[in-house]
Amino acid sequence: MKASTWGKPFTWFKAFAFAASLIPAARLVVGLFTGGLGANPVEFITHTTGTFALVFLMLTLAVTPLRRLTGYASLIRLRRMLGLFAFFYTCLHLSTFVVLDHFFDPAAILQDVFKRPYITAGSVGFLLMVPLALTSTAGWIRRLGGRRWQQLHRLVYFSAAAGVVHFLWLVKADLREPLIFAGVLALLLGYRLAVWRNAPWGKKRAARSGVSP
């Protein structure tokens, strides 16, 4: 990240957000050395990194609605960072599964990915994030062109949905937490749908299909 792309009054806030985003990971590292991760550290790390992957996906998706609703345009400068933190926690989550849970046992991992629907959903969510992380640089925005870049990055909607489904499918009986994520995601995507329907092209399409806006 180049300092020149930061708006000046925003610099400190962004630095603060960056540091705050690292707290969950830092707590895991501290817990690992102090024995503060409970009886089943592998499970604790898996749950924590998975939860924060979803939290950062939701935060990333909240940037655009918040920016429009508050009129505080600078928020957009947080989006890439939040998105990359979502990817960061997803990578930690995935490596916990591969290294700590299965210790590189390819047979067990492949079986899980293809036979366990919740792991399939999680893998899809991760794979959809990879091109987004790779093309998150200014260079790639230029190379792809703003419009195409934006279209590509709409994949994040599907990635977030896959992440929520992954969570919903793995719990035993208490759906409360995954349903909270599902509700937040529905709000964030619903907002976009509403904007899209009110936009000129959206209106036209709605009128053509006979649906009142």
Binding site: A39, N40, A108, D112
Partner: peptide
């Protein structure tokens, strides 16, 4: 139906 029972993690 949702996860394997072939192995387990002994606490500790």
């Amino acid at each position: 139906p949702r996860w394997s029972q072939a192995s387990e993690r002994r606490i500790g």
